[in-house]
Design a protein around this nucleic acid. Structure first.
Lengths: 342, 342
DNA sequence: GGATTTCGCTCGTCTCTAAGG
DNA sequence: GCCTTAGAGACGAGCGAAATC
């Protein structure tokens, strides 16, 4: 004897409940919640206070189903990337400003990009932001036919989607120029080949070194954990004897691993060696206070959401790339090199 | 002249499309996708391959709307907590095993617990897991009337919800006992008063110190960033002269900040001072290799999801607490103290 | 007649009953 | 009995059109 319906107390309130509570039609409640014109101010207040009283919250599934667009933006991101800490809140905010809600879909070693994307499609998101996605170009190309896509932190080519990334070549270039300007002659770079878009940051290093007519010294790492990549790099620098006076890293986590390991070996930062990171995530922690290249989460998020919103509206359909600012922030992990003595 | 309907190509495929494609009824497709009995194996394969071909993905909104239960579990979590990295994938997995999908809802300085929860309610999740929620007891109490709740990493009292947390008192107790057993006499503890459930870990320290008849030395920090709390604690230890031979921290991030700052001051870990963390997040990074207390993300996630699933099924309605294992993992940040010399 | 309110159909799926091969 | 279809009524809200004051 299955009961047809839960009793009133136990189920969630609906528009009809709100309407019945104050004796108006369900549709009128709907208009009020959509801020549609045609609801008198007086009635609106009555409706909202009644909704509050009985604890009404709009059913998002019903809205998404009925609307022509779901008004959702799907965001696929890696739980293990520290940059998400800043990025996700920024995306929430930017999405809200454009009238979208956010559906997060996590990627991890146990949950593939594809699974994350399927969930986004299942929710009928109007568009998706893929953060640091490693899906193949062909695959993203195919997906982008069904759904507007923005690739964040990966400058994918050959796909008609939005591409948003910080201008790594500029940021690293500036960092190297700065180091050279305060007297550094041997400036090394720690490259992490598995990191997306690593090549642009590396290029910035190479360009600056060329312009300054210095010697390049690039250490390329491929570790899983990026902090560990920095630590491994430290071993190489120590082992090879000639320690450079400055080291630029492809990201903050690498810089942390590097600095930690160097200091453990009795090499002081910045006294013996200057270190520069990238991203301004952990670098901004007061006890580290690393010089780094700041990429602004809000700027990235706003560019991504704005482009996506326009794609959803049908105003863009070709590839478009946005490079957001990458600004050198000088803190206490860098200083002029010691004047070499005897 | 607004068009009533997008043309077939541009909208997402539905069950009806799949059915039409192979000339069966829409209902049969529904049965197949629900793995309901009454579909021949042959037909099932035809249906699934047709679905694949035309790119059909079930509309989650429609499912959630129609079903008695949405089969969603909402998870509210802080983007800035590193423990989420492991926990979220573990929750996805556990939820799937119980037939639930996961809806993530981020909490940050720009998005309150309340907003996160409203989204979860809006999706009509059947239950919610609140990770490290700082909502008031009264508030959670109220929410738990509308929705089964599990509090993860916060041992909330006075609310009829599931409570899952690692057995911090045991883990820290074991850590201190271990340090004492290898010869340490002065063992300090860094407490972070703003961290949820910090008191249980502290209690483990106090109990072990009492049992070993040693002196307590607790440094209580209240910083925003927990790595910074560790760094600040380092300053205190250095300033106060008498450095302990071992320091136990309330979590790994504190241990990292502490170790970094101590080494910067020329104090070697573990030669001069042994350090123990808690959580086994960053502690497991190879270059750190900190001794720590491991709390198992899968164990936490499974306990949380299982309890929640039973609450949803109506089998539990009172408060129930699960303490998951907290195991000391000895790595290279601890060793016997130097024998003191004149 | 303009502001306010209501009607009626619809989104895609589930679920139930009844019945056909 | 097996597998399959038909038909119909939800679920909760959106939205164009019609009705009311």
């Amino acid at each position: 004897m299955p009961k047809k319906r839960m009793n009133r107390e136990q189920r969630h309130a609906t528009m009809a409940d709100v309407a019945a509570h104050i004796g108006v039609s369900r549709q009128l409640v709907g208009l009020a919640f959509r801020n549609a014109p045609g609801v008198s101010a007086e009635t609106a207040t009555k409706i909202f206070s009644a909704a509050e009283e009985i604890g009404y919250q709009p059913n998002l599934a019903a809205q998404a189903l009925r609307r022509e667009g779901s008004k959702y933006i799907g965001v696929a991101y890696h739980t293990s990337h520290s940059s998400s800490e800043e990025l996700l809140p920024a995306i929430y905010k930017a999405a809200e400003a454009h009238g979208f809600k956010v559906i997060l879909s996590a990627i991890s070693s146990r949950r593939s990009d594809q699974e994350a994307l399927n969930e986004i499609i299942g929710h009928r998101c109007d568009g998706a932001i893929l953060i640091s996605s490693t899906l193949s170009v062909a695959h993203i190309k195919q997906i982008s036919k069904a759904l507007p896509i923005v690739s964040l932190s990966r400058r994918i080519e050959g796909v008609n989607c939005g591409v948003v990334s910080s201008e790594g070549e500029r940021g690293v270039y500036d960092a190297v120029q700065y180091l050279a300007s305060i007297g550094h002659q041997t400036i090394a770079y720690v490259d992490t080949s598995e990191m997306l878009d690593h090549e642009f940051r590396l290029q910035g290093y190479l360009d600056a070194i060329r312009d300054r007519k210095l010697m390049t010294r690039v250490v390329t790492m491929s570790g899983d954990y990026i902090e560990s990549a920095g630590a491994e790099a430290a071993k190489l620098f120590i082992g090879q004897g000639g320690l450079p006076t400055a080291i630029v890293c492809s990201n903050d986590q690498v810089a942390l691993g590097l600095a930690y390991k160097l200091q453990q070996a009795g090499i002081k930062v910045p006294d013996d060696v200057s270190i520069v990171g990238y991203d301004d995530t952990v670098a901004s922690l007061p006890f580290l206070d690393f010089t780094t290249v700041h990429q602004d989460a809000d700027e990235l998020a706003q560019a991504a959401v704005k482009d996506l919103a326009e794609r959803i509206a049908g105003n863009i359909s070709s590839r478009k790339i946005y490079l957001t600012s990458a600004k050198l922030v000088v803190r206490s992990s860098t200083r002029s090199p010691r004047t070499s003595q005897g």
